[in-house]
Every structure is written in C-alpha cells, then in structure tokens.
Amino acid sequence: MFDSLFSSAQRAIRAGKADIRLHVLSVFSLAVAFVCLASALLIVVNLQAIQTRWSRAGHASIYLRDGASEDDVLSLQRALEQTPGVLDTRYVSPSDARKQFLGDGVEGSLASLPIEAFPASIELKLAVDITPDAQAAIVTKLLALPQVDSVETYERWTERLANLVSGGVAASGVLAIVVFAAVVAVVASTMRLAMQRRRIEIEVLKLVGATDQFVRRPFILEGAMQGALGSLGAIALLGVLFLMVRDRFDASLATMLGIKPVFLPLPVVLGMVGIGAILGALASFAGVRKLSAV
C-alpha cells in the first residue's frame, strides 16, 4: 500500500515537473479563487471576535429617575455591590454626565443642552465571565425598582454585530460554493489537459497491464496537490496583506473595538488546505474518469 502510494507520488512528481507551467497556472488560478474565500473568512473571524469581546464588555449603565434621592442611590449601590457578578459601581451625577459628554468635543447646538437633559446614572462594572442569563436577571430586578428608569447593557450592539456576523457567514457560505465550483472546474480542466498531453504515457501504461486505478492515481494526487497548494498560496498571500494592514491599525481604533485584528485560526487554515486537497482530488478523479480506450 505504502509502496504503491510512494510510486504514484513519484510518478505524479515526475509528471508535474514535465507539465510545470500548466500546474503553476492552475495553482495560481486556485489561489486567486481561494483568496476571496479566505478574505471573507478573515472578516467574519474578526467580526466574531469583536462580537465576543463586546458581549463580555462587563459594563452596564443604570439610568435613575429624576426624583431619586442620595439615600436611594447609596442603598442601591450597596445592594448592587453585594450582587454576584458585579465588581464595582460608580455614581455619575447629571453634571458629571454633561461634563463627560461635552468633554468629548461636542460643539454647536448640542453644547447648549441643559443639565436636565442628562439623567443621573450608576455605572456598573461586571465580571467578564458573567453569563447573559445572570446579566438579564440583574437587569430584570433593577427595572422593578422605583428609582430605576432604564438599564443599558449594550446588548443591542452585540445583537447588531451578531446579525452582521451571521450575514457574513451566509455570504461566506455562498462564496465558498462559488469558489469550490471554480476549484473543481479549474482542476478538472487542468487534469483533462494533462491527460491529453500524457496520452502516450497512459497508452503505454495500459498496454503493459496497468489497471485504470493505477493510471489515475498520479492524476488524483496531482489534483490534490494543486488544491492544497492553491489554498496554501491564498493563505500565504492573505497573511502578507494582513500584516500590512495590521501594522497600520490605529491603537485608538483597537481600543474602541476592544480587539486587535486577528488572522485566521490554525484549524480554519488547515481546514481550507484540507478542503482544497479533497476538492482537487475529487475534481481530478472526475476529470480523468474516462481514460482513453486502449
């Protein structure tokens, strides 16, 4: 088994060297197709990272009603500090809120907003590992209190991102189908062309008693190698582009998003190479299914 695989690999390499231009062109075409898919996956992976980070932002704002007294605030703060999952509380008075808002450089008509436009709030720092259910339970209890007007957990932003991510996943899925179809078409065509160029080799093999399986095996290996090299080339190209972009990624932008850009995780990279190889092998098998009748 190992011997026959080794022999097939040797024959595939020998044939690959003879048709090097054809194979390079094919691998390049595959790399272009795969780079589209890898780019889409890279965007999805980073959006997913932002979503995960934001879903664990560990921050919530409790907006108080206008009539809430200082005692109400203090007792609420004490109660919150004893609640599991709450790490810290900070009272923000209307004047502090206005100062913060205007301090962010807001100008024009917004700058003339009165202090009454800014409700007092208690800013909560939550544990990073707090579950969405536990967070939801705290919000429900808070909303039942008379001095609490509303609670902002920034979940809506997470939901928006989740929608974006699921849209990205769906788009990537469609793109994957297109890319896979392109890979199959390119590899099958290349292998059919290679088969035509190696007609005499196939004829000789069949005349000396080679089975169809023996004749096909190197072609299938070549197809698998093309698929794997195409996807690997795409990932390498995307890696270079990613490094170029990452170096220009502003620190304040990273702070705002809560993450630094990440490259495709290793399992995704390996999965792409594996899929490339499998698709290449299948396409090649389809391409050389009908060997010349000798």
Partner: peptide, 30 residues
C-alpha cells in the same frame, strides 16, 4: 484485461515510448 496484458509483451512500429522519460523509466514501467 490489464491482467491478460501482463502476460504479453507488445512492440509497435511507432515504438510508443514516453519521450520525456529516461530509457530506464520506459522499460521499468512494465
């Protein structure tokens, strides 16, 4: 059919050698 052909040696007018292969490879293929 391949197993039938393994009992036969076949020689043609147009040689049917693989030009890109060495002499050794052309013979060893059998």
């Amino acid at each position: 059919i391949p197993y039938l052909r393994r009992n036969m040696g076949i020689v043609f007018q147009d040689f049917k050698l693989v030009p890109g292969w060495s002499v050794f490879d052309n013979v060893a293929v059998t």
